[in-house]
Every structure is written in structure tokens, then in C-alpha cells.
């Protein structure tokens, strides 16, 4: 029977080892929650359309449309994240994610964006941004598939 915690009941090394295994199992059970497929598609769609802000003409109407677009884009991103959190029932803690899982994709994204910025400046072709965002969107969909498959395996 589980107690409410009586002092002085220190476990044996075997019991402590079993408790540590319980901890690992409990934390691993969260990894078995597959993220919803639509979340990655929504993120990919938002990333894919992001360069539209670059094609608005530098007029009052263009600037207004750009601002409205940025606000709408941010709101849609917030809605997607909010729906994801409600669906899976957890708010992930970024610091609990292994650093390489966070930093490697971030370095890749940064390299892609810097590369696109350089090409846009050299060739003066705005469509390069759409290629870059398309590649990024495709990577998000692929990453979503990998994460879902991994989660199903762990479930």
C-alpha cells in the first residue's frame, strides 16, 4: 500500500534502482504520444506562404496588406500551437529536449535562410525565397512523419 510519505523509510539499493526504472518508464510513456499529423501540415503551410510578405508593393496599400498578413500569420501560428497543446494535453519543455535535437535543425534552418538571402541579393530574384520556404516546409512534413513513426514505435 502506498503511504503518504513516512519519514525514515529509505529504500534499499534494489528498491532505489526499481524507482529509477519507474521514472524512466514514466518519462518514456510521454514519448509514445504521436503528434497530430495536421500540426506539421499547418506549420509547413505557414512556412511555405511566409515569403509572400516580400512581394507586396512598397505602397501604402502594400504596407497595410503586409502588416495585416503578418498579424494574420502570427494569429494562425498561435492557433495551430494552441490546438496542438489542447490535442496532446502537454506543453513541452524545451530545456528537457536534448540539445542536438533543438540545435541541429536550427543550424540547418539558419544555413538555408542565409543561403537564400545571399542568392536573393546576388541574383535579385524574390522567388528564391519561395524555394527556400518550400524546402523548409517539406522538411517540416518529413520531420513530422519521422516523429509520428517514432512515437508509434514507443507506444
Amino acid at each position: 500500500m502506498e503511504t503518504d510519505g513516512e519519514p525514515g523509510g529509505r529504500p534499499t539499493p534494489q528498491e532505489a534502482g526499481a524507482a529509477l526504472r519507474e521514472i524512466e518508464q514514466a518519462q518514456a510513456s510521454l514519448a509514445g504520444t504521436p503528434p497530430p499529423w495536421w500540426y506539421f501540415l499547418a506549420l509547413a503551410a505557414l512556412v511555405a506562404i511566409a515569403p509572400v510578405v516580400n512581394v507586396a508593393p512598397p505602397t501604402l496599400l502594400g504596407i497595410t496588406l503586409t502588416l495585416v498578413g503578418v498579424v494574420a500569420w502570427t494569429a494562425l501560428l498561435g492557433i495551430a500551437i494552441g490546438l496542438y497543446v489542447r490535442k496532446v494535453g502537454i506543453v513541452p519543455r524545451v530545456s528537457a529536449v536534448p540539445r542536438r535535437v533543438v540545435w541541429l535543425p536550427m543550424v540547418g534552418v539558419l544555413a538555408l535562410l542565409i543561403g537564400a538571402a545571399v542568392l536573393v541579393n546576388v541574383y535579385d530574384q524574390e522567388w528564391i525565397w519561395f524555394v527556400a520556404s518550400g524546402v523548409l516546409a517539406a522538411l517540416i512534413v518529413v520531420m513530422g512523419g519521422v516523429l509520428r513513426r517514432k512515437a508509434r514505435k514507443m507506444a
Partner: peptide, 26 residues
């Protein structure tokens, strides 16, 4: 900590340690 050591409470804390928030049902 004897409060945390009770098996279910240890597992609750283990789950909550890797997230910011978790829904009761989860």
C-alpha cells in the same frame, strides 16, 4: 524526500519534470 518517493507521486513528478504543463487526463 518521503513525499515524492511514494511510487505514484514519483511517477507524477517524473512526468511533470519533462514538460511545462500536463493535462490531468494525460
Amino acid at each position: 524526500d518521503a513525499i515524492i518517493h511514494a511510487p505514484n507521486r514519483l511517477r507524477i513528478c517524473a512526468l511533470l519534470d519533462v514538460v511545462e504543463h500536463a493535462e490531468f487526463g494525460v
